[in-house]
Design a protein around this nucleic acid. Structure first.
Lengths: 144, 144
DNA sequence: GCCATATAAGTTGTGCACAATTGAATTGTT
DNA sequence: AACAATTCAATTGTGCACAACTTATATGGC
């Protein structure tokens, strides 16, 4: 008989658990802003530079239009974002921040520190973790 | 003006990306078994010891009945699992493996190695990553 | 024994992820 | 100019996650 893999040895399960635990910590923090975690990620990208096309957002976040289209509609319904058909290319939809969307960035400034506090790791450990995860993600993408 | 957090500095985004990338590598591998990744996790727990109650599965995996109940129904529809009301406590539903569910474990034995190959990290790096992620998950849970 | 409380599993509703498809607009080729 | 191929966004359908609630059963205190 072949040994079945053991759950507690799986790095992937550790990854899956940690990711959900992080989202769970974000949840009450982001509730103050009225955002979910994926919505917050979209806002992070827009705060860096906007307007952005849906495709462009998807490239930054690794998400497709099937995820982003309804998410962006919800952000628009919240009044944080406007979707405008691009003039020079009618296929594209440019996502603009509204003043309310812009204004939210200052409220978001404190969030990373709150997460870092909850993580219980030293800044050096966090930085090393981020590096390992980036390497891992790149290798996993190559493997597909 | 307050600086908005930058996406590329976020450990949590690295976590979220890595977790999705891992699931994406699992997807075609698990398709051979007819399983999704969360279904595979449930099977891993059952292969270790069964029968298990829904609550017990949830404790192992960090999932609640809202996620598990429909998932277990799908596993039952696949013929891998049977749900039986427990005799001594009629509230409990014991999840039993069918012979088909048992038999699947040998096909799953090769999966961890395939993922390890795709990860592009040394066994030592993987082991260290798993340790860091466990610490992180525990701290994040404490923070909520 | 009776009842308040607790516990187990299931249901409902919302919001991702992602595959597959659709429809509209643009680009490349001839 | 015509038209095939490509690109962009949206839609449809499936399966998680998770909060909030429901129903059924069990348990502890009196």
């Amino acid at each position: 008989m072949t040994d079945a893999p053991r759950l507690d040895r799986q790095v992937c399960f550790a990854l899956y658990s940690a990711s959900r635990a992080a989202t769970a910590v974000y949840r009450p923090v982001l509730e103050d802003l009225g955002l979910t975690y994926p919505q917050y990620l979209v806002m992070l990208v827009l705060w860096e530079d906007q307007p952005r096309g849906v495709k462009e957002l998807g490239r930054e976040l690794g998400l497709d239009s099937g995820t982003l289209s309804p998410l962006l509609k919800r952000l628009e319904a919240l009044g944080l974002v406007e979707r405008r058909r691009s003039g020079d290319d009618e296929r594209r939809v440019a996502i603009h921040l509204t003043p309310a969307g812009q204004g939210l960035s200052s409220k978001a400034a404190a969030i990373p520190q709150r997460l870092a506090d909850a993580a219980g790791l030293t800044p050096a450990e966090l930085e090393q973790l981020r590096g390992t995860l980036s390497k891992l993600t790149a290798a996993l993408h190559d493997a597909v």
